[in-house]
């Protein structure tokens, strides 16, 4: 599947799940701060991507699970170097640019841009091809 087609399907999922307009779903848009996603929307998006693309997404594969509860990863509300490295390894599709300069746990959801979701789907589809 070509990247444009993947983007188009991801955009449809986000429009449906987050009740946003198509033109708001730009590649650099963040799911939370730009498109208004809340925590439950991440589960919805994951389910819809599985349905649309036909692949299975394991727990913690697309979005992080319980990062803030891991004492080795968090200190004073910020990700430790170890935590940041672990997240980057587990979520290679995410956009870590701003989180690296300001690693607050509360900012973790902002690493998910539309482009990050497209990258994730692209990798999953390539792996299953």
């Amino acid at each position: 599947m070509e990247r444009d087609e993947i983007f188009s399907k991801v955009r449809d999922v986000l429009v449906e799940s987050l009740a946003v307009d198509e033109d708001e779903v730009e590649p650099t848009a963040r799911l939370t701060t730009d498109l208004g996603a809340e925590s439950i929307d991440f589960l919805d998006i994951k389910f819809q991507l599985e349905q649309v693309f036909g692949f299975r997404v394991e727990e913690g594969e697309l979005f992080p699970d319980n990062v803030a509860q891991d004492q080795g990863y968090v200190s004073d509300g910020k990700l430790t170097d170890k935590g940041l490295s672990a997240l980057k390894e587990r979520l290679p599709h995410a956009d870590f640019g701003e989180l690296e300069t300001n690693p607050q746990v509360a900012k973790v959801p902002e690493i998910f841009t539309v482009d990050a979701i497209v990258r994730f789907c692209e990798t999953k589809l390539q792996a299953s091809a």
């Binding site: 439950i40 991440f42 589960l43 919805d44 389910f47 979005f63 699970d65 319980n66 803030a68 509860q69």
Partner: peptide, 12 residues
């Protein structure tokens, strides 16, 4: 509908 398993919340 979408249901959440409350004890599995991401905030812990």
């Amino acid at each position: 509908l979408l249901f959440s398993h409350l004890d599995q919340n991401s905030a812990g």
